[in-house]
Each structure stands twice: as C-alpha cells, then as structure tokens.
Amino acid sequence: MTKKKTKDDGSWGKLIRDIAVILLLVLAIHSCVAKPFYIPSDSMMPILRNGDRLIVSKYPYGWSYASVSFHLAPKMEGRLFGRLPERGDIVVLEHPLTRVDYIKRVIGLPGDTIQLTNGELSINGKPVKREVQPMLAIPVDRNTPGPDSSLSRFVTRGADGKELLEIPIVRETLPGGASFDTIDMGPGYATDDYGPYVVPANHLFLMGDNRDGSADSRVPAELKGLGGAVPFDAIAGRAEIISFSTDGTAKWYNPLSWFEALRPGRAGTDLRPVRAGD
C-alpha cells in the first residue's frame, strides 16, 4: 500500500510540475515574443474591425512592465533594449491609469508639436498630407458597425438590398513617409481641434484611425481617453498581422458556426503602414 501511494503521489506531482512549466512557457512567449489580441471596437477602422484577431509582437521596442501579459508586473520605469516606435506604427499599450489594453497608432514622437484644426493634423507646424479617397463599402454584420459606434449613421443598402457601411476615407502621410487610411466623418466633433501640444520626453502621442470615434491622446482620461501623450514604458508591443476575423455570429457550443463566422479576406492582412520607398 505504501509503495502504491508513493507512486500515485509522484504522478500527481509530475502532472502539477508539467502544468506549471506549460503555464510559465505560455507566459514567457506572451510576454517576450508575441501574443494574440482581440479588437472590440471601431476606433481603428478602416484597417481594423471589431471582431479582428491580431498577432502582436513584443520585442520590436524592447521590454517593460507593460510587456508582461495579463498585467502581472508592477508598474516601474525603464525599458530593456528600448527602441522608439516609428510614426505610423500600430501599438498595443496599457492605459497609464486603468491598465486596460488599448490599440492606437503612433502619431507624435518625443519633442513633436501636435495640432489639429478642423480635423486636419499638423506635426511641428507642417500640415500632414491628406488625400481624399473613394467611399469605402463594408458589409454590415453583427460586429460591424460595433456596439454604440459613431459609424452607424453611414449604414445604407446596396443594389442587392443588403446593408452596407459606406465610410469617408482620407489617406494621410506622416513625416517619415508612413501612409495609411483614416476615417473623417466631417466637422462638429470635439476632437477636431486640439493643441498645439508638445509631446514630452519619453512619451508618444497616439491616435485612432477612426479620427472622430477614438478615445485617444486627444481625449481626457475621465472620458476613457489617454489624457495626452503616454509614457513609452506603457507600450506593450506592435500589431503585426490579422490572424483571423469573425462577424459575431459564432456560438461557443457549435464548432461549425466558428468556421461559418469567419470573414473572408481578413486573415493575413499586414498591419505595418506603407512607407515611402517600400
């Protein structure tokens, strides 16, 4: 009896150790290499939609407390092998106050002067190049437009009678050559006029591509915005690629619905901005 009990105890001990090793390995990969990320809103449309799943790399900017997944690390200053993002990068960050994960685009670097006038962005006194694009039509589904989205007023019907989201697109080109599409819903929004604001040292100014529907550096923290530029240490990683995207119809108890809910053409979308010379 004693031998059998010892053997069983050893088996349980090995199982617990194996589980612990697996959990530590997952945590290490999530914190140091890459992790998945879910888009829950329309703030980064048109490039990202509610329901997209991304791969976020952890190493391009070095590591800080924000790199540790599940917000397990205490907040502290400093980065290991830190390297500033480039203007135009899409980054995941911890909100400096709430520690909730946000995803935004880097617009201003330390020392930059940021200003918006009637929705038009200027950096260091120079207007950012803007090119109006044709209206973008996106099929409406349960995830698009997202909950309480400011884009709902752009829902219309196509020739086939199906609902479409037709949104106004403006392509911006930042200093350094990064180009990407934004949504400009027209005048009358509180975030259309901002600054001038000088980005402090070791901080980044972040904005959503849905310029009139994003709680970003232009929006006070009490309104769920970032309340100005965020510390570089709060950046957790860089958005790289869309792994898959769902339309909101999947049911957890029906595996077949998981495949039926996949949006075609979203997987594999590169999230790095086009840069001059690419």
Score class of each variant (00 low, 15 high):
M1D: 11
K5G: 05
K5D: 04
L24D: 02
A28K: 01
A34F: 11
A34G: 03
Y38I: 05
S41T: 13
D42A: 12
D42V: 05
N50Y: 00
L54C: 08
I55P: 01
V56L: 09
V56E: 08
S57I: 02
Y61V: 05
S64G: 14
F70L: 13
H71A: 07
A73H: 00
A73C: 02
P74F: 01
P74L: 00
G78Y: 00
G78L: 01
G78T: 00
L93H: 00
D101T: 04
V106C: 10
D112K: 07
I114L: 14
I114P: 03
N118Y: 09
E120L: 11
G125Y: 04
V128Y: 03
V132G: 03
Q133S: 02
L136Q: 00
D141H: 07
D141L: 05
T144F: 03
T144D: 00
P145I: 02
G146M: 00
D148T: 03
S149L: 09
L151T: 02
L165N: 11
E166R: 14
P168H: 15
P168E: 11
E172P: 11
D181L: 09
G186E: 09
Y189N: 10
P196K: 14
P196N: 14
N202Y: 04
H203P: 04
M207T: 01
N210K: 04
N210Y: 05
N210Q: 07
R211S: 07
S214H: 11
R218G: 10
E222G: 14
G225D: 15
G227K: 15
D247W: 03
D247I: 04
N254W: 04
N254I: 06
S257T: 12
A267Q: 08
A267W: 03
L271P: 05
R272P: 02
